[in-house]
C-alpha cells in the first residue's frame, strides 16, 4: 500500500485524525460523535502526532501563563494565544474545562494507546478518547508516561496484557508509519476529516471541525446546496 493509500483509505466512511494535545481536536470530539451517531456510522480514528515545535516554535510556561522559555516569534505567540482564547470560549460554553498546557507534549504514546484500543471496538475507543482528553486538559494525565497511558487503556475497557510491548514495538511502528505520508497528502493538523475515495469521487480532506457541516453533506449524498463552514453554536449540547 502506498503512503497516500495508507493516509486516505479506509473501510470506514470517515477517517478522523486527532492528537490528544490539541484543544481544537478535543473540541471536535463531541460534534463528531454527534454526527456519527446521527448517521449511525463509525469512524476510523487515527493519531496524528503534531510536531508543533517544527512550525510554531517551542515554549514552556509555569502553568499560570508566565513564560519560562520561548523560541516563538511575537506573531507565533499572538496566534497561539488567540487559539487558546478561541478554544476556551467554546469549551466554557460546553462546560468543558480546558487548562492551557505548560509545555509541548510528546503525545505519541497516547496516540499508540488509541491504536491499541481500536482493536477492541468503538465503545472502548470512545471511552479511551474521552478519558484521555478530559484528564489531559485539566492537567491530570501525564501522556508521556507509559504506565499512566496503560492505566487509561485499562479503564477504557481494553486489556493491558501485551500493551507495553505494543507501545515499544508494533504500536510504535504503526504509529510512525501513519505519520510518514501525511504531509505529502496535505494532512498537517487536527482534527482532520477524510472522506475516502469512492467510485469516481476522490478522497476529500478537511481540516477543522468547522467543516463538519460539509462532511455531513457529503456523507448524506449532497442534499440541497452545499453548506458553508460553521462551528457549532455557543452552548450547543455536545
Amino acid at each position: 500500500m502506498s503512503g497516500e493509500q495508507l493516509a486516505l483509505s479506509s473501510d470506514a466512511p470517515l477517517i478522523v485524525y486527532i492528537d490528544y494535545k490539541s484543544p481544537y481536536a478535543y473540541l471536535a470530539i463531541g460534534p463528531t460523535y454527534h454526527l456519527l451517531d446521527e448517521l449511525a456510522i463509525e469512524a476510523d480514528w487515527r493519531p496524528l502526532t503534531l510536531d508543533i515545535v517544527s512550525y510554531a516554535g517551542s515554549a514552556k510556561t509555569d502553568g499560570k501563563g508566565q513564560v519560562l522559555k520561548s523560541e516563538r516569534s511575537p506573531k507565533q505567540w499572538q496566534s497561539v494565544k488567540y487559539a487558546y482564547r478561541d478554544c476556551k470560549r467554546y469549551a466554557r460554553a460546553r462546560g468543558l474545562e480546558l487548562l492551557g498546557t505548560t509545555k509541548i507534549w510528546d503525545s505519541s504514546l497516547a496516540g499508540i494507546g488509541l491504536l491499541w484500543c481500536k482493536q477492541y471496538g468503538q465503545q472502548v475507543t470512545r471511552r479511551y478518547t474521552e478519558l484521555t482528553y478530559q484528564r489531559f486538559w485539566i492537567r491530570e494525565l501525564d501522556i508521556e508516561d507509559a504506565s499512566v497511558v496503560s492505566a487509561v487503556v485499562n479503564e477504557a475497557g481494553a486489556p493491558v496484557e501485551g500493551f507495553a510491548d505494543f507501545l515499544m514495538g508494533d504500536g510504535r511502528a504503526q504509529h510512525d508509519a501513519l505519520q510518514e505520508p501525511l504531509l505529502d497528502c496535505d494532512i498537517y493538523g487536527v482534527p482532520t476529516f477524510v472522506i475516502p475515495a469512492s467510485g469516481d469521487a476522490p478522497a476529500e480532506v478537511f481540516f477543522g471541525r468547522e467543516h463538519l457541516p460539509m462532511v455531513r453533506w457529503l456523507l448524506t449524498g449532497q442534499p440541497g446546496p452545499a453548506p458553508d463552514v460553521a462551528y457549532e453554536r455557543l452552548g450547543a449540547d455536545y
Binding site: 510536531d51 517544527s54 512550525y55 501525511l182 504531509l183 496535505d186 498537517y188 480532506v205 481540516f207
Partner: peptide, 18 residues
C-alpha cells in the same frame, strides 16, 4: 525541506485547495 517547511507547504496547499 525541514519538517517545519514541509508543514507550512502542506498547510498552504491545503488552504488553497479548500
Amino acid at each position: 525541506q525541514s519538517r517545519g517547511a514541509q508543514h507550512k507547504a502542506a498547510r498552504k496547499r491545503h488552504l488553497k485547495m479548500d
